[in-house]
Design a protein around this nucleic acid. Structure first.
Lengths: 188, 188
DNA sequence: CGAAATCTTATGACTAGGTACTAAGAGTAG
DNA sequence: CTACTCTTAGTACCTAGTCATAAGATTTCG
């Protein structure tokens, strides 16, 4: 035995882990044992065969793609609204909204909450965002609840524009401010 | 012939495209032709076999993970990137991204593409949006393809800020511009 | 030391999901 | 009717395995 069985199996785990695309034959070559030994090792360690490993990696990617695509219709739940005046929504930050690495919410979700609240506030069937000036005051983390408050600042009947200010808080701490210039299709 | 060859092959392409995990046998069943016909079709269309397809999907995921930002955290598909310099992504507007009434893309999706591109561009493990100034020039509609181009304008080493400009186009027509002030954790 | 236990290797039969090639029948257009 | 395309069938072969059995090699223990 060049290495003990235990040593080899430990190495096998980490080897496959950082390259799931390796075949039993390559592993046998690498560890200078027979292919059968590698197969027994995999059996003992419950490591699936190459093709299954690849499939798992591929499926994971596929799931991620499907999951990351749709941002729901309205981001956050509107709990109070007075058209053309003010509105409030809450948004709970979950796993799917944060960067895996540091559990900080991706900016576009916080923006999306504010933006969709601004859209909802406009009493018009066609409300679009024309411009926005936004500011992320502090980062929002996993499991925090963001409360966004939107307020109409000005309505410009001629230019068909409505100006909305949105401020978002976590525990009364300001995390985001945004000034939205919204387009509307009809005079009010 | 239940369908013409052309029709079948077109359907084959899209079927495999949205489920690369389907076998020839399942395809044969689906199109009510023999397995051999499916194989001839794949040969003509240069569509690789199931295992190769799965492998490609898996490898793509693997490659992406190695890069500075995992793919599932990006809205749109990054097709070109030079860290700290420029990047390009494409985003196809689908049903789930538009207002039901008028089939216009919700602003936050266009923003999300631009914002996540700006994040990806920063060569740092912690890149966050601090501020943004955005402008929606014209509305984006269902089935349009948005091409976002991001460019680093300035890097402020002291303030740990990187300024990124993103311009998004549909058929060479400007639909969105955004100026992002990005926070980074480390000096470059 | 020798038997028992563990570890390693070999062998054979079988599998999925194919490729590559040959052959033949069906349907259609000129 | 012939020529051609399209479809189906069948064979041999491939990879990267599984599963089961058997036997050799090595280590451990009494």
């Amino acid at each position: 035995m060049r290495r003990t069985k235990k040593e080899r199996q430990q190495l096998l785990i980490s080897t496959i882990n950082d390259n799931p695309f390796i075949t039993d034959e390559e592993l046998a070559e690498k560890f200078q044992v027979s292919v059968q030994t590698i197969r027994l090792d995999r059996l003992e360690l419950s490591i699936p065969e190459l093709r299954e490993r690849i499939k798992t990696v591929a499926e994971k990617r596929f799931d991620d793609e499907v999951r990351s695509l749709p941002i729901e219709e309205v981001i956050g739940e509107i709990i109070d609204i007075e058209l053309d005046q003010s509105a409030i929504s809450i948004f709970d930050v979950k796993e799917e909204h944060v960067f895996q690495r540091n559990k900080i919410a991706r900016g576009h979700h916080v923006f999306a909450q504010a933006n969709s609240l601004a859209v909802a506030l406009i009493n018009d069937e066609l409300a679009l965002t024309a411009k926005a000036n936004i500011h992320f005051n502090r980062s929002v983390k996993l499991n925090e609840r963001v409360i966004a408050k939107a307020r109409v600042i000005k309505i410009d009947e001629n230019a068909l524009r409505t100006y909305v200010e949105v401020t978002s808080f976590v525990n009364n701490e300001l995390v985001f401010t945004g000034n939205f210039e919204m387009y509307r299709s009809k005079n009010h």
